[in-house]
Simulated scan of single mutants.
Amino acid sequence: MPITKQYLKSKPECKITFCVPAKDASKVEVAGDFNDWNSEALKKYKNGNFKAQLNLPVDHKYEFKYIIDGKWENEVEADGYQWNDFAAAENSVLEV
């Protein structure tokens, strides 16, 4: 589940591309503190990958998770993980 980062020269933001390989899934979403944990759908492509792009301010750490067909999943290639007492589980961490 790779994430790519493209830092913008014109403003202090980073274009984040979330890519989730999930051929058998019907719906993949991403939720995190960058969108107040309101899930955002990723677009499904013919190759079975789901993708979405967000521009996020730099010099921040963001916690997030994927929701794959209703099941919360972490990013295996996250920059780190942070324990969340509310969910009693770890969240993926994205550093930009």
Rank of each mutant, 00 (worst) to 15 (best):
P21N: 14
Y62M: 05
A22I: 11
K27R: 04
G32D: 07
S26Y: 01
S26W: 00
K44T: 00
F18V: 08
Q53S: 04
N74M: 15
A22K: 07
P2D: 14
E95N: 15
V30G: 04
H60P: 03
F86W: 10
Y66I: 00
K11D: 14
V30F: 10
N55S: 14
N49E: 13
V58G: 03
V20G: 00
W72N: 10
N49K: 07
W83V: 07
K5M: 13
T17L: 03
A31P: 00
K51F: 08
D24G: 14
E77I: 14
D24M: 13
V30D: 11
T17G: 04
A78L: 13
L42D: 09
E13D: 08
E29V: 03
Y66P: 04
E73Q: 11
K23H: 07
P57R: 02
T17N: 04
L94N: 01
H60M: 09
A52C: 02
D79Y: 04
P57D: 12
A78N: 09
K71L: 12
V20L: 04
N84V: 03
E75I: 11
K23F: 07
C19H: 05
K65E: 13
N49T: 12
K5G: 06
I67D: 07
G48M: 02
F50V: 09
I16L: 11
N38I: 14
L54R: 13
Y7F: 12
N55R: 15
A88M: 11
G32E: 04
Y66M: 04
D59F: 08
